[in-house]
């Protein structure tokens, strides 16, 4: 194990209540707080713990996006990544394009593992990791809740609908992480100062030979349908009565 790459995405902070623009052209992003996608923080934390356990592992944080994405990569460096790479573009990036860009980085960096969050909390696509694994023609272990590495292999426990599933994959491989894999560390002030001195390379998307193709065009953004507000009942007897009348219980 020599190198781990972690892909991080700049997203609207999870505490922000996202609102749709009245003209349906998108969601309101002006002046909104941006952060590292929370699932990607868990991915980075796992990489850092492997580094701390085994030593002598370089952790590279990578992202694709607008120039300000450097802020999120600085956060990754403050958490403990050794260096960072930003594939810069102002074009809208689909998951397949992100996977193509990360594949180009993987070919340069040759990591043993690429960690990503299982999905980003903005587009909720849940695609990039699987797509990268497909293009790279390497194993994927999605929704990881436990990762054990030994002898060029990883045993990954995955959160699936029926419970937990364990698969064994040969490295190099892509692993996408779920909520309960770990609890990411908090960044301390001295780490933020140190992160400013760590290397952060910026490369243009087209220099990787990848075009930001638009295969899916967003034509409209609507607020979700609202449920009608219901009734309040005063006690259990009335509750049971209402549910019986609706035919929901006997």
């Amino acid at each position: 194990m020599q190198k781990i790459m972690v892909c991080v995405k700049r997203v609207v902070d999870y505490n922000v209540r996202v609102r749709v623009k009245p003209d349906g052209s998108g969601v309101m992003l002006d002046g909104v707080k941006m952060s590292v996608n929370p699932f990607d923080e868990i991915a980075l934390e796992e990489a850092l713990r492997i580094k701390e356990r085994t030593g002598n592992v370089e952790v590279v944080a990578a992202s694709i996006g607008v120039p300000d994405t450097q802020q999120q990569l600085r956060t990754a460096l403050a958490m403990g990544a050794d260096r960072a790479v930003l594939v810069e573009t102002t074009a809208p990036i689909e998951p397949l394009t992100a996977a193509q860009a990360f594949l180009a980085l993987v070919r340069k960096e040759n990591p043993d593992i690429v960690f990503l969050g299982k999905q980003a909390i903005d587009d909720d696509a849940n695609q990039t990791g699987q797509m990268l694994a497909a293009l790279w023609d390497r194993p994927q272990a999605t929704y990881a809740s436990k990762v054990e590495i030994a002898g060029g292999k990883a045993a990954v426990t995955r959160e699936v609908d029926a419970g937990l599933e364990t698969i064994e994959i040969d490295l190099p491989a892509v692993i996408t992480v779920d909520l309960r894999l770990n609890e990411p560390r908090y960044v301390k002030l001295p780490d933020i100062m140190k992160a400013k001195k760590k290397p952060l390379d910026v490369i243009a998307l087209d220099s990787l030979g990848v075009a930001a193709e638009q295969r899916l065009k967003v034509v409209k953004t609507d607020p979700p349908a609202q449920r009608q507000k219901g009734i309040m009942v005063k006690d259990v007897a009335e509750l049971v009565d209402v549910l019986k009348k609706k035919g929901l219980i006997r």
Partner: peptide, 29 residues
């Protein structure tokens, strides 16, 4: 491309899906 969590078909190449944990619904072509 993949349309994740397709929730409505509007035309053979036009679909609706949720983003931002369902706080917005986009129509994609």
């Amino acid at each position: 491309p993949q349309v994740s969590d397709l929730m409505a078909v509007e035309a053979p190449h036009r679909f609706r899906r949720p983003i931002y944990a369902g706080n917005a619904i986009i129509t994609v072509e």
